[in-house]
Design a protein around this nucleic acid. Structure first.
Length: 415
DNA sequence: TCTGGGGTCCTAGGACCC
DNA sequence: TCTGGGGTCCTAGGACCC
């Protein structure tokens, strides 16, 4: 007997835009974009004009002069996204959330309670529409990869069930760009070889694909082209790194500019880490120049980092290394910090001089411990009175923010 | 007037160790 | 002194995902 198609992939359609149209009936049926300087999400009416996420607001307005810019209901995005995924939880504990608006679920063994996978998918779609007022597309298949492709094919507001005996019939005529892991670069390389469909990719030997795309990517895509996808549902994924970035427009590459920005970024990251008593060992700073070329410098240190000022100082040092290596670059357009090699330290509450990296940088001092204590006091104030209540002077200066902090939180993966 | 923010994984070279 | 091979870690860059 063939294994059954029990994996669901559920994906809310044009999510932020749909929420805005839900909240304000006057926006329904109209081309709208969430965001301003950059389009974070576009309604289907706007997509018909070629407007899409990531595009500058200016370019979007060119394509669609009657485009309405709106948005800002961040709490509603979070609440409705959680509620939609919560409906999946009613049918199976095996739910893997991918982002605010997307999740996989495995309903194997749920038939006697709730009906077939297709029935459950229909029920989920009906409930999301009835209880939340939002359109959601669902794909049902035997593997995650195929379920994901099915939901993309089902959009907007549709359902596609892939019969296990007709998988390749469904998969092979589709363009390679629909595959997980094929972006513009890979698609271009394959097109150069005359490969446009998943079926054409499947015809090639794995060794050949690996030579074109690299060892790992070649092996993975060759398998996926035959719908060989070994991945199961993984619940409660934790982040392996935490970062923050800020686009700056065009700013001179000088300390007076990058120092306050790095402190603000360090503050965001370090406070997130401290909430969960995490710390990290590898710190990466990224600087993007005017031509969008980005350079990174990183360092791995034995002792853990979770104090804001220590993280900021290390990031500053890394940025100074970038500057020394690129003396001709006078303008920067983005700064980013990321912390990886995350660990939870069982000793963290002892307030030992944990920040040995900082101490190593200043032999004979024990400032790391006091920094962490000060941070914890500040965290406590923020817990009671909100993030904006208190902060480092240098980090709370008037920074130009292209995207509000409330939006940033939506993209964060739980630590 | 091209490009926001938070992530994951892979590759390739070099250092270092056995 | 030179030479071999394998494994691991670190660093920099890049592709991709939502």
């Amino acid at each position: 007997m063939e294994p059954a198609a029990t994996i669901l992939h559920a994906d809310l359609d044009a999510f932020y835009a749909s929420v805005e149209q839900l909240l304000n009936p006057e926006l329904r049926g109209k081309p709208i974009a969430v965001g301003g300087g950059v389009v974070l999400a576009a309604s289907y009416e706007a997509k018909a004009f070629g407007v899409h996420g990531g595009m500058s607001g200016w370019a979007a307005k060119e394509l669609c002069p009657e485009l309405i810019f709106t948005g800002g209901h961040f709490e509603e995005y979070q609440r409705l996204g959680d509620a939609a995924i919560g409906i999946l939880d009613d049918y199976t504990p095996l739910v893997e959330r991918i982002s605010i608006d997307e999740a996989f679920a495995d309903v194997a063994g749920c038939e006697h309670l709730f009906g077939s996978p297709e029935t459950i998918a229909r029920t989920v779609r009906t409930r999301v529409r009835a209880e939340l007022g939002l359109p959601i597309s669902v794909g049902v298949a035997r593997t995650k990869h195929l379920a994901k492709i099915a939901s993309q094919v089902a959009k907007p507001d549709g359902l596609v069930v892939v019969d296990p005996v007709r998988e390749l019939e469904f998969l092979h005529p589709l363009p390679v760009g629909l595959m997980w892991g094929v972006g513009p670069v890979t698609e271009g390389k394959l097109e150069d070889e005359g490969i446009l469909t998943i079926g054409q990719l499947a015809e090639q030997r794995t060794e050949w694909v690996q030579r074109i795309l690299g060892h790992a990517a070649g092996e993975k895509l060759s398998a996926l082209a035959w719908n060989r996808d070994p991945r199961g549902i993984v619940t409660n994924q934790r982040a392996r790194s935490a970062g923050a970035q800020s686009a700056l427009g065009k700013k001179p590459f000088i300390e007076r500019i990058y120092r306050p920005t790095l402190h603000h970024l360090a503050d965001r990251i370090a406070s997130r880490l401290r909430v969960k008593s995490w710390h990290g060992h590898t710190i990466t700073a990224r600087v993007r120049f005017r031509d969008l070329r980005a350079v990174t410098r990183s360092i791995t240190i034995d002792s853990p980092i979770s104090a804001t000022v220590s993280l900021a100082e290390i990031a500053e040092d890394l940025v100074r290394v970038v500057q020394a290596d690129h003396p001709d670059e006078r303008t920067i357009t983005l700064l980013a910090i990321s912390v990886a090699q995350l660990e939870r330290d069982p000793l963290v509450q002892l307030e030992l001089p944990l920040d040995l990296a900082d101490d190593a940088r200043r032999p004979g001092t024990r400032r790391g411990a006091s920094r962490l204590s000060a941070d914890r006091a500040m965290d406590a104030v923020r817990t009671r009175f909100g993030r904006e209540a208190i902060g480092y002077a240098s980090a709370t200066l008037e920074l130009e923010r292209s995207v509000p902090d409330a939006f940033r939180g939506l993209a964060e993966k739980p630590l």
